[in-house]
Amino acid sequence: MHHVTLDTWSRLPSPIHRLDPRAKIAATLAVLVSLALTRDPGGLRIGGYFALLTLLGAAARVPLAGVILRAALVLPFAGGVALLNLFGGDPARALGLLAKSFLSAYMVLLMLSTTPLHALLRGLESFGAPRFLLMVMQFLYRYLFVLSEQAQHMMRARDCRGGRRSFAAARGAVAVLFARSYARAERIHHAMLARGFRGHFQLLDPPALRGADLLYLLFIAASLTALHVSLWNH
């Protein structure tokens, strides 16, 4: 069974991993808003944000190079808009756009790599995200691995019988996978009904935030305030 890298990282032991997902979501939102409100971040501010996020990543003991490389994947997308600004004669803004895009992705990736998806979805629910949508995401994630394994088995079976890779074969495989997924969905529904499901998911109330969560939020708020104050002074 193969698991996505972020899923593996999200289960590492660290003080940041142990924080309540609501605190991590709130901190991420705060950083994203702070970045959005920073009009033209100079090199100093970019360095400040980068240092803050890298400090968080180090405290979380996640592979920083891996997180940074993944965050850099947003640069080609932000690059188009940055180029427009560059050709429009505003290189500082172009650089700022690239930096803000990268730093936003960096923060989101830090949250994802320190919070298992189920905890993240539960945290999002506390912030008012629609429960039905979150449940669909949860089921999709849960069965993505099962589906991907089935696809791998089918490919192996095809290769063993000398099958060739073609659009027609892929089309047939997708159809079979769809039919199997449909049958599995029915069996899952049966399993849910058999344990008393009546159409609504009942969940345990989340526990209250702890001192460490509040400290984390305070630290993020203080750091962001310091970065903004330094911007005004600048």
């Binding site: 949860q138 069965y143 599995r184 069996r187 899952i188 049966h190 399993a191 058999a194 344990r195």
Partner: peptide
């Protein structure tokens, strides 16, 4: 459904929570 507990053949069908 409380009195009869069914263990299905494929555990992946039964373990749907995160």
């Amino acid at each position: 459904r409380q009195k009869v507990g069914i263990l299905f053949q494929d555990s992946d069908d039964q373990l749907f929570m995160p």
